[in-house]
Nucleic acid binder design. Structure first.
Lengths: 341, 341
DNA sequence: CGCAGTGCGTCAAAAACTGACGCACCCGAA
DNA sequence: TTCGGGTGCGTCAGTTTTTGACGCACTGCG
């Protein structure tokens, strides 16, 4: 009995190594690399070869359309060829699915150039999925719906999208016309962009006014005629978008400090709250009158007020007294609207 | 002056073609292919080669760790090797960014095996982004926040996630224990799964009871001990998840038919509605008393009621009368809660 | 104008590949 | 059990490709 791979068959394999090494070091078309640098980078990676061999290999790869050559200047400049993409093993159905889902669901979360980069891969993904019914149909089996009322998100000018995303990406300041809430006219703003918040289709730019540290939240659909400036973004010390949002600051905070909320809720609402909690520290206990007492430490935001009111008689605010009083007043006022007629 | 590529240097390039052809036809490890089938598939693709040459090439590629061989049975079985992935041109920063964003934001939207498939690519993506500050920092510049109140999404058992997603993916029915709203005990359900809806962290399964056509919406966090059955999913004729959701059915519809909503709103709310519309056909006009009259055709859902109430005195329902009456009654009731004390 | 840097033709030597065997081994059918 | 076909692989001579080492043509630069 002889063992596998005992004898040699004269095959080397070094050539594949070299080809792959070269291919993986070639930049995409906008960029290019001259033969000498390429050789040095290969040497740096421990691949022993020489100028002539490399030249020959590159010509060979060019014939295969894998690389293309700019021969207009003498140290020839090489870059990736027209063959869009070579990938082994071929794109799996799993990957194809993620690509397509990404394209569908990350629209507002990626810079436009990155979305463009997704397109050719999405086309290949479609082809891959064509042969797998289960994967193909998955896309029609999941969806995201907004929590609240279904609304029609406002349109944003493509120009605004491009410029704002670019400013944010390149960390550059910008100026733009902005329509303040309730006003009809636009005003020019100097914007120091810090982060983007997507909220049910409404895209807002968290920023400071250039030169100040006052935060402002600009909705992209109210913006017009943006233009980049040369100034770099100045990030306030300690600023962190996740934290900013986690503190509820993207949601019209009414008070800096969290509040100790106390409610009396019907069993219906209690059921919901037992699953979807208001806060990590939420406490829920039966009250005397068949209702339930809820305590939780939350941020005082406009949304909180809206949420409290939306349940009508099913939610009664016990404390803080300030909020109880406000809700009481609003309910009285609202009820008054319906008195006559 | 001689022209480029005039003389031949003896290089062929056919070998690269063959290598790539072989590599691109190799399946990933769980699957495998024997030498003969591979040869036939190559022949089918118009590549003339022979058994011996293919065997030699495969051995060579194996030495390069590009393919691996199962030599336990005689027609050797070949599959992709340990070299995780070969890709030219190398992963771009754009691609890396989409991969990482996908992993972060598509958690509930992809079947678990697809998420697993993302992991190795995400690792490479991290490496790629390590050298590009702009791309790396993008992730900390965008975020998604829920529209309404920030809440803590309920936890879902991993077992439930796995099984439900698998059932949906493979289009198979399942059974599971489910805790009905407000009840404490679990009941066994036969589930014919149709689609998944993600709603601010709450994942719900749109389904029918097996053998019936009555829709039910099951929240994954209320589910326990799921198990697949052998029955295939039966899709009701005409069912389409997107349409189902677009009709607001995932949001507790109260009436089948859309309603003609008419409101009187304060200028504050009118401002908002001029940007974020209730419906495509929304009409907005000034009313006599300084308020604005809004007309729109919308679905009558629980969320609509909540939305209407959340604005307190800023929104008055004019019609339909039925809803006006309900809101009036609720407001009166709610206001009464705050009367004494 | 001269010189260094590049690309490429050339050519002989070296290496790799091919095709055509034959043998060893496995496996299923007779 | 035997037998024959299917596979994998060693071998070897003939062929093809690659390599290494020139030299020349051309470019850009001082």
């Amino acid at each position: 009995m002889w063992s596998r791979a005992a004898g040699r068959d004269g095959l080397d394999g070094m050539t594949i190594r070299l080809e792959h090494a070269v291919l993986s070091r070639l930049p995409k078309p906008p960029h290019k690399i001259d033969t000498r640098s390429l050789l040095e980078r290969l040497r740096g990676a421990g691949i022993r070869t020489n100028m002539r061999a490399l030249q020959r290999l590159l010509v060979k790869l060019e014939a295969d359309r894998l690389v293309s050559c700019d021969a207009s200047t003498k140290p020839y400049q090489w870059s990736w060829g027209e063959e869009q993409h070579v990938e082994f093993p071929p794109m799996s159905a799993e990957t194809a699915l993620s690509v397509l889902m990404a394209q569908e669901h990350l629209r507002h979360l990626l810079p436009p150039p990155t979305l463009d980069d997704l397109k050719p891969r999405a086309r290949r993904a479609e082809q891959v999925l064509a042969s797998s019914k289960a994967f193909r149909s998955w896309r029609s089996k999941v969806t995201v719906v907004p929590r609240g009322l279904a609304v029609v998100p406002p349109a944003i000018e493509p120009e605004v999208v491009r410029t704002v995303y670019r400013a944010l990406f390149e960390a550059r300041q910008l100026t733009a016309d902005y329509k303040l809430r309730g006003k009809c006219d636009y005003r020019r703003f100097d914007i120091n962009p810090l982060g983007l918040v997507v909220r049910e289709g409404v895209v807002s730019l968290i920023s400071t006014r250039s030169g100040t540290t006052r935060f402002q939240q600009l909705h992209l659909h109210r913006m017009r005629a943006p233009s980049l400036t040369t100034a770099k973004v100045i990030v306030p010390t300690g600023f962190d978008l996740q934290r900013y949002v986690a503190q509820g600051k993207a949601a019209y905070v009414l008070a800096e400090e969290p509040i100790a909320l106390e409610l009396l809720v019907s069993s219906l609402v209690a059921d919901t709250l037992s699953e979807v909690k208001l806060a990590q520290d939420q406490a829920l206990e039966p009250a005397e009158d068949g209702r339930y007492r809820v305590r939780a430490t939350v941020r005082d935001t406009i949304d909180l007020r809206g949420w409290l009111k939306s349940y009508g008689p099913h939610v009664e605010v016990v404390g803080p007294g300030r909020i109880r009083e406000e809700i009481r007043a609003e309910l009285a006022q609202a009820a008054a609207r319906y008195v006559d007629r």
